[in-house]
Structures are given as structure tokens and as C-alpha cells.
Design a binder for these strands. Structure first.
Length: 220
DNA sequence: CCACCGATTGCT
DNA sequence: GCAATCGGTGGT
């Protein structure tokens, strides 16, 4: 159990639900990306528990996908994408941000889903504190008014809010520290698709999924 | 060994 | 429009 309060007669909070099983991730990457919309990412860290509903994802494949780290085959960094499904792939980019993925497909076939944005559902104060600490470490002033829509509306921002860095790379997402619960699946009618953003090649396919009109989705 | 550049963010 | 900031990657 992850310590969420439960009131008798009411359904348990999303964060107290069990992690999705490994079989959830052992599927086609775009299918998993779509299915992750509405699920709840939970991080049970020493300093506190944070959780957010996934509102934006992107699918990355293996060789044949020019935008993927696995495009040129396994390297020291990308080999994890060829590994076991349901494992966290965290990498460092632009000299300052960590980005979180969930490894997909069967072992031996590359695939990962980039988690791009969350709607905070628990631990917002801790999320704010982490953002302030992150900015202070870089001698930047803290944001004046940080609303819930500003805490995790982007792949680099959500890892700051959730306290995710290279220490979580390779962690089992079906485990008890960093995991994803069932949440509330979102109907097709409420899910939009678009080309992936922030990349130069590989924009010809609709591999980005997000909740229509949700203010927690990244600005792009 | 070196040069290039990025699955981003926030300020000008 | 562009700077920040640094490790992965691929070519010498």
C-alpha cells in the first residue's frame, strides 16, 4: 500500500491501486501510448508521494524510426529500449532535463513511450518545492504563481515535479516505487492524435496522443 | 580525441 | 528568436 487515505464505502484513490501488469507494456508501442492516456503515474519517494494522471504521450519505435534513440540499433544508452517491457527508460538531455519513457514490445524488439505531461493528483506541494529547488540550483528565481497546470505540462517539467532522474533509469514500472496504475481509461472521443513534436525527422506519422482540451498538456 | 547536437524550457 | 548546458554518439 502506498499510504493514501481511504474512506469506507468510497472507491480507493488512484494512487492506492496496484501497478498495471507487465503484459500491459508487451504490446505494439503506439497501442501502449494510446492506452497510457488517463493512467496514473505514481512515485513513492523518500521525501513524499507524488502522482499525476497521464494526459500526453508519444510512441518511439526501433530501427526504421529516425526520431528514436534505437534507430541505429542498441547503444549503451538505447539498449534498454530493446529490453524487457515495463521498465523505465530515463535519459538526460539538453544538459539539464531528464525525460521518462516506459519500455514496450517484447524483449529483443525496441520500443518506448515518452510520458509528456501529467495532471497532478497528489503531492502538488512537493512538486512545487522540487521546481523551486531545481531553479534555485541554477540560480534562477522561483516562479511567482505556479498553478497545477504549470507543474508537469511537459516531459522535462514532469520529471522535476515527480523527482525522477537517472536513478530511476531501469526501474521496474510494475514495482512499488515508481509505477503506473489503471486510473480511468479515456474514451477515443476525448483523445486527440498529432505528429510527434520537438523532433526533426519522423513527423509523418500521428504518434502523439493527448487529452483534447486538457490544460495540462504541453504547449509544444 | 573532438565536434556536433538534441524526444526542452523560458526569457528577449 | 535564441541561449542554457553537457553527455551520447559517430567520425577522425
Amino acid at each position: 500500500m502506498v499510504g493514501a487515505m481511504e474512506t469506507p464505502g468510497r472507491k480507493p484513490a488512484p494512487v492506492s491501486a496496484p501497478p498495471l501488469p507487465g503484459s500491459f507494456y508487451a504490446r505494439a508501442t503506439d497501442e501502449v501510448a494510446r492506452d497510457l492516456i488517463g493512467r496514473v503515474l505514481v512515485h513513492d519517494a523518500p521525501e513524499g508521494l507524488t502522482a499525476g494522471r497521464i494526459v500526453e504521450t508519444e510512441a518511439y519505435f526501433g530501427p526504421g524510426d529516425p526520431a528514436s534513440h534505437a534507430h541505429r540499433g542498441p547503444t549503451p544508452r538505447s539498449s534498454i529500449m530493446f529490453g524487457h517491457p515495463g521498465i523505465a527508460y530515463v535519459y538526460f538531455t539538453y544538459g539539464m532535463y531528464h525525460l521518462l519513457n516506459a519500455v514496450t514490445e517484447d524483449h529483443g524488439k525496441a520500443g518506448a513511450v515518452l510520458i509528456r505531461a501529467l495532471a497532478p493528483v497528489q503531492g502538488q506541494e512537493l512538486m512545487r518545492a522540487r521546481h523551486v529547488a531545481w531553479r534555485a540550483a541554477r540560480n534562477r528565481t522561483p516562479p511567482a504563481h505556479t498553478r497545477d497546470t504549470d507543474l508537469a505540462d511537459g516531459p522535462g517539467k514532469l520529471t522535476i515535479a515527480m523527482g525522477i532522474d537517472l536513478a530511476q533509469n531501469g526501474q521496474d514500472l510494475t514495482g512499488e516505487k515508481l509505477f503506473i496504475t489503471r486510473g480511468e481509461p479515456v474514451a477515443d472521443l476525448a483523445v486527440a492524435v498529432s505528429p510527434r513534436i520537438g523532433i526533426r525527422q519522423g513527423t509523418e506519422h500521428e504518434l502523439r496522443f493527448f487529452v483534447k482540451g486538457d490544460p495540462h498538456v504541453s504547449k509544444g
